[in-house]
């Protein structure tokens, strides 16, 4: 994939931070703030984030070497794991001790690095589960179809719309188990969008998705931003990061080691040392091993 030949060059949000750029820099309008979040597994400190803020209505990339603690950090932020210490808040509301499903209801939705498609449900049922508006999900109401039938049809229309964008509409009546690995990733992202989140956290959304579809999904992610959503994603594909991210946060050994606009961060020697490797200018794709397409001209 070559971003320079992309038809629409995304408009980057700039001026997100306040003051000098350094790890933990304050943002003008942070949606998510983490403070002193620390998670230890036995002797191993997996996450030790002193301070980090995620800017609102922007696309932020979280990058870092394998085992840096990115997934663990996601788990901590979304209530799937509890840190040993620390504070973190979403929209100014503290999330400490808030259970995962409540975090999701507040509008903070995450996807999983290891896909969690609901295998023995159809693709459509997977999608419908994402909706937060179905009254028929209450035990009492579920017994009376007239309460929820109509809403279900609305949800279905909405689901088909999203599925079409993700090129899964033809699969809607298949079991999710029959989808390919990449399609499952897509389904999971599509399902997350059904909840109409305020902040989506995607853990390696593009791993295993083919380049053509990646491009259209990038478009889609950019559209999410236009619609006012905030996106935080983990990705090892530097093309993608450079292409759509407004802000990049680099983690290594559990700590935030660098932050900044994509181009700036990738010039940071510490980041090159710890993560990118010195050949990043020649072809980032070969660094991550994810992109095997022949190069069309030099990347920006």
């Amino acid at each position: 994939m070559s971003s320079s030949s992309q038809s629409s060059t995304p408009i980057k949000s700039t001026g997100l931070h306040v003051g000098e750029i350094k790890p933990g820099v304050a943002k003008k309008d942070p949606i998510l703030v983490a403070d002193g979040v620390r998670r230890q597994f036995g002797g191993l400190v997996a996450v030790d984030v002193a301070h980090v803020e995620i800017p609102r209505n922007a696309i932020t990339a979280l990058i870092g070497p394998n085992g840096a603690g990115k997934t663990t950090f996601f788990n901590l932020l979304t209530g799937f794991d509890t840190p040993n210490e620390g504070k973190w808040s979403f929209n100014g509301k503290s999330l400490a001790g808030v259970s995962a499903f409540k975090v999701a209801r507040m509008g903070l939705i995450r996807t999983f690095q290891l896909t969690k498609a609901l295998a023995l449900l159809t693709v459509m049922d997977n999608m419908k589960l994402g909706s937060t508006e179905q009254p028929g999900e209450k035990l009492g109401a579920s017994l009376f179809p007239f309460i929820w039938k109509k809403k279900d049809e609305e949800i279905e229309t909405q689901a088909i719309e999203i599925l079409t964008r993700f090129k899964l509409d033809t699969k809607k009546d298949d079991f999710a188990a029959s989808l390919s690995g990449g399609q499952r990733k897509l389904l999971e992202m599509a399902r997350a969008l059904m909840t109409k989140p305020e902040l989506v956290m995607l853990d390696e959304p593009m791993a295993g998705v083919n380049p053509a579809l990646t491009e259209s999904l990038l478009e889609h992610i950019l559209n999410l931003k236009k619609e006012g959503m905030t996106v935080l994603f983990v990705e090892h594909d530097m093309h993608m990061v450079r292409h759509i991210a407004d802000w990049v946060i680099v983690m290594a050994e559990g700590r935030v080691v660098a932050e900044g606009a994509p181009d700036e961060v990738m010039k940071n020697p510490a980041v090159i040392d710890a993560y990118l490797g010195s050949h990043q200018d020649t072809d980032l794709g070969t660094v991550t091993g994810r992109i095997t397409l022949p190069k069309k001209g030099k990347d920006s």
Binding site: F101, K116, L118, A141, S142, R191
Partner: peptide
């Protein structure tokens, strides 16, 4: 029959498949 063919049934079937996924969608698993 009514229960399992309702949205409620959809949620519990989802939980059967992967409760973390359902939790991440904001359901009180």
């Amino acid at each position: 029959w009514r229960l399992v063919n309702s949205p409620w049934g959809r949620v519990i079937k989802g939980i059967r498949e992967d409760e973390d996924a359902v939790r991440s969608l904001g359901k009180n698993v």
